[in-house]
Amino acid sequence: MSTATAAVSPTVSASAGIVFDNVCKFYGEVLGVNRVNLTIPKGITSLVGPNGSGKTTLMNLMTGLIRPSRGRITVRGIPTDDPERLFAQVGYCTQFDSFPRGMTGREFITAYLRLFGRGADEAARLAQSAIDRVKLGEAADRRLAGYSKGMRQRIRLAQSLSHDPNVIILDEPLNGLDPLVRAESIALFQSLGAEGRHVILSSHVLHEVDAISDQVIMLSHGYVVAEGKIQEVRGEMREHPVLIRVGCNQPRRLAIEVLRQPQLLRAELIESAPGVASGLLVMTRDADAFYLDLNRIVASIPELEVTSVAPADDDAGSVYDYLVGRGQGAQS
């Protein structure tokens, strides 16, 4: 885990992960990504950053659709210029919203599976399984040209899952989905991650991936600005004070006690209704010292009842804003 773009020591063996070794990609004179050193382990990894930060470039690099200007990428030990081995392991749900003409959803998946050299029966069976998995059964035999944006998104997802890959790369997979399908898709990603697969997804909606990711890779202007678990990334950002929300029955009393702490910068009452305080929002330079002191205060004041203690700014949006040094949050 790191908050810098310097080389990251691989935490998993090269053959098991997706490894970027000092990768740069330039489109002519335009920077795609620069000096990327990453090892992506199993589980759900989210690439986060605003449009143009390099998320799709990283995904296209790891699937060989584009080639690095410098550096090397391997996916479970397979170089990305070996499609025959690579795509036996990898499924990629792209953002490209175009399909071969005149096909139905089922034909699209079946034709894709036939490219693997599979027979018609096996391709049909796997296609049906993938269609069922994304719950697109009723529309499977309709022409793709008549699909809504959400249906097109789901059929692409079905295509990427149809051959049961170990590495699933999903570029903005929740775009265009209605809330119900979005929830089903998130559950699907979580189940794929829990099965021990690599699930790499990108999103510019930070709170969306925050809840489901095992780790995040934060990108800004083509650079990886941090990677790891969100909370760990936040913990290493010593230069930014930590916001902590404390729910309790006597917030004014607690405020008086905590304000004695030298590390404390600010304490605000949280009002559940006008004039009715239900908690305290504190800003401290040292979260660990605050938690120890809070324990001491609670032990010394028997009538003070603390109902909840939680960090208020370790979500992906806040972390991203701290990292790229901007006042407003990322698009969320």
């Binding site: 060989g64 499609p83 025959e84 490209f96 071969p100 490219l115 693997f116």
Partner: peptide
């Protein structure tokens, strides 16, 4: 639509 082919193991 060329990526359709380029995403298959051939």
């Amino acid at each position: 639509s060329l990526h359709f082919y380029f995403l298959a193991p051939l």
